[in-house]
């Protein structure tokens, strides 16, 4: 299986904001935030079609999200997961004594996970907390 290394950042999107206010337990929130935006060149490297589920893994965790083409690109080498529990499943919790986890600039690996499911926010967090995933 092909794995590619990318640099992950996260942040707000308007879809994330709208979906969050509409209810984080709803599908719309998963659709807005359970994604990874990748540059088209990186999708090619991975050999993935647009809208393919992928597994994102960092030193700090792993999560399944849907890979889509960058909406605010091009940004080859850089990956974007909107602010939310999916991004925070892999983000770097180190604060280096500043109080602030290192949310931006997390080295990740991405691989195709076509048969795996993108969990809802509540399911994802509950399962992670129980140690089920």
């Amino acid at each position: 299986m092909t794995k590619i290394a990318l640099n992950l950042i996260s942040g707000r999107t308007i879809q994330q904001g709208v979906a969050m206010e509409g209810g984080k337990e709803k599908d719309a929130y998963t659709k807005a935030c359970g994604i990874i935006e990748m540059d088209i060149s990186d999708l090619k490297k991975l050999g993935a079609y647009r809208n393919t589920n992928v597994r994102v893994t960092s030193k700090h965790g792993s999560v399944v999200v849907k890979a889509i083409e960058a909406t605010q690109g091009p940004h080859p080498g850089l990956a974007w997961i909107p602010l939310g529990p999916w991004a925070n499943s892999v983000t770097d919790p180190n604060t280096y004594s500043t109080g602030m986890p290192t949310f931006k600039g997390v080295p990740i690996e991405v691989e195709i996970a076509i048969n795996e499911k993108v969990l809802s926010s509540v399911e994802l967090v509950q399962k992670k907390c129980r140690g089920e995933i």
Binding site: K24, H60, G84, N88, P93, V125, R130
Partner: peptide, 17 residues
């Protein structure tokens, strides 16, 4: 606030315990 969604998962686990 919603730390469950916006904190790293390692912190969220601690809250749940």
């Amino acid at each position: 606030s919603d730390p469950g969604a916006h904190f790293p998962i390692s912190s969220v686990k601690k809250i749940s315990q």
